[in-house]
Amino acid sequence: MNATQLLLTVVMFGSLFSVLTLSLNLQYSRGGMINFGTVAYFAAGAYAYAIVTQDPPKGLDQYLFGFGGPWWLGFLAAGLASFIFAVITGWPTLRLRGEYLALTTFAFAEVFHSILLNERRIGNGSVGLSNVERPSTEWTGLPDTYIFTLAALALMLATMLFFNRLLASPYGRAIDAIKDDELAAQTIGKDISKLRFQVFVISAIPIGFAGALYAMITTLVNPQLFTAEVTFFIWIALVLGGDRTIIGAIVGTMALVLFQEVVRAIPFETVRSAQIASSVEHMMTGLIFIIILRWQPIEKLAKRVGFS
């Protein structure tokens, strides 16, 4: 893999996953909600996109629905699916606090994953849906990779701007007030559970869009792609970048994707050595995670520079 290709991959997946990190940042750093089921909203988006754009089932296909719709319809459906899933999971769970919320969202994500895996009528079970529709990019005259990198960047920037505007508004200050002092916020008439629910649901929409874009890039959705690993990956990226800052969330994600891609780009002689490398990559990621949570160096640096 040459340098340009590596750069493109990092920017593409880095921007894509940054959308998830940004949403998580909003939920955790601003809303004080620990969501350990991020991957479920991402998967809901990807599957919604695939189902809406997929041709009707034929031959060995076991899925029931394939609407053969255009890509933009699928994209909108992805945002909607993630939104609906957030309403369903957020409604009953958001009165729970801290670790209980973490566990319930985690449980919801696992149940959703299990249904996708076992219920063949949704998306062919463990086989998944392949040859997912991509928007035609011929008119631009650019290779697909460039287009999707730009699309991912655009989605990230749009999410960033949207969240930025939201947080700078009086609405955003109400959210911050709840995070800082729940009782005081309640005293001046802020409906805490309503605000938390809104933050949770709003921040799920970009995750759905990211899921649709992910399905376009990989042209494949299957349960293997949407395990709890994705959730933890996003959490590590968020911690890496130091929470509370939008720029930190993006830098953290990019750094983590770069780290993984570099390790993957190293050529290995045997399967065993490649497997050791990926395990060591896991260990390193975990170690960095522990170290950063303990000393919080990036957060301190960002505060000094004045980014927060």
Partner: peptide, 18 residues
């Protein structure tokens, strides 16, 4: 502490895998 323990799980899991 809960979030850190995920990091610890990664380190132990990675070590066993390796």
């Amino acid at each position: 502490l809960l979030i850190t323990s995920i990091g610890v799980a990664y380190v132990i899991g990675g070590a066993i895998d390796a």
